[in-house]
């Protein structure tokens, strides 16, 4: 199980590294978004709430493009069937893809987030903890639900649009929690326990549900 997960992660990282222009474009897209936002705000500093929302918009967009890309690796030459024929519990495939996708999302977050206080004049974070936890929980949660939905929508004809359309409503609680955490890191809010709890509970649920349902999902 662990060997299989690790092998899939390594494989995805190698593939992504060979086509690193993709991650670079996702980051560039984020920067461009920030620049347009700066123009729209006429040079005035952005309020913390709006900045947090905008940051997560960028991450959501990157998440959709990156995840659709990594799943296209599997489908180009049906290598996907090779994974399914492996003598391991099939949820290992899910967790392997999940870890790889989390890594890529986290890289994009690391590159894009600083641009918010460099370009948009948002003050540097007053407290780091909610920011870091928010970014990490967001990356893991989006990657988990996203990876699961990628497999769920794999037979769909309109996958490019149905994937985000089903991803966003299902991740609303997570987005709500991480956006509040991000905003709080700029304004120094007090009672954040609830949002840590929501993010944590969400991660536990969507980390375990695929383990139960994944076999059913791929066996057709």
């Amino acid at each position: 199980m662990w060997t299989a997960i690790w092998a899939i992660v390594q494989k995805d990282v190698t593939l992504e590294y060979r086509r690193r222009w993709l991650l670079a474009s996702a980051v560039l897209f984020g920067f461009l978004f920030v620049v347009v936002l700066g123009i729209a705000y006429n040079g005035k500093p952005l309020p913390a709430d709006a900045a947090a929302g905008a940051l997560w918009m960028v991450i959501l967009f990157s998440c959709v493009t990156i995840l659709l890309r990594t799943s296209s690796f599997e489908e180009e030459q049906k290598a996907w069937y090779g994974l399914l024929m492996a003598p391991v519990d099939r949820s290992a495939i899910f967790y392997g893809k999940l870890v790889a996708n989390t890594l890529f999302l986290f890289l994009v977050e690391l590159a894009v987030t600083p641009s918010f206080w460099v370009i948009l004049g948002v003050p540097g974070p007053a407290s780091w903890l909610p920011l870091v936890v928010g970014l990490a929980a967001g990356a893991v949660g989006l990657a988990a639900v996203g990876t699961f939905l990628l497999f769920l929508t794999s037979a769909s004809e309109g996958r490019e649009i149905l994937f985000p359309v089903s991803l966003i409503p299902l991740t609303i609680p997570l987005l709500l929690a991480v956006i509040r955490l991000t905003a709080a890191s700029w304004t120094r809010s007090d009672d954040l326990f609830v949002w840590y709890a929501v993010a944590g509970g969400y991660l536990v649920l969507f980390g375990l549900v695929p383990w139960l349902l994944f076999e059913l999902l791929v066996e057709v």
């Binding site: 190698t14 593939l15 060979r18 030459q77 069937y81």
Partner: peptide
């Protein structure tokens, strides 16, 4: 693992 499968697609990763 008892089954060796070859489809019309190569089931390989082009980038590797």
């Amino acid at each position: 693992a008892q089954i060796g499968l070859v489809l019309q697609e190569s089931m390989l990763y082009g980038g590797l």
